[in-house]
Amino acid sequence: MGGQPVLHTVTLGSDGGGLHLVPCSRLVKLANGFACNVSIRKGSVHADGKNILDLMILAAGPGEQLELVTSGDGAEEAMAKLVQLFESNFAE
């Protein structure tokens, strides 16, 4: 494991559709590009950022707050990209 886990809190755009099918798939594709673990927390529920079914089951709606955690190789870089993805409202 390469260093400390990286944490970041993001809020889903209130005008978007929340963490729907297509945003989820963008997230998974991004996470799969890194060796580190990616997990997303909504309250007490955890989802593996590399598993689309897990992410869907989070059922994160517009305006909801999520906590992103990356740990392992490339955790910092992965987090930067993830935050970018959330901030761009999941634009490709």
Binding site: V22, C24, N51, I52
Partner: peptide, 10 residues
Amino acid sequence: AHLLMARSPQ
């Protein structure tokens, strides 16, 4: 997205 579901390791 369907493809990712089908390929989901879980």
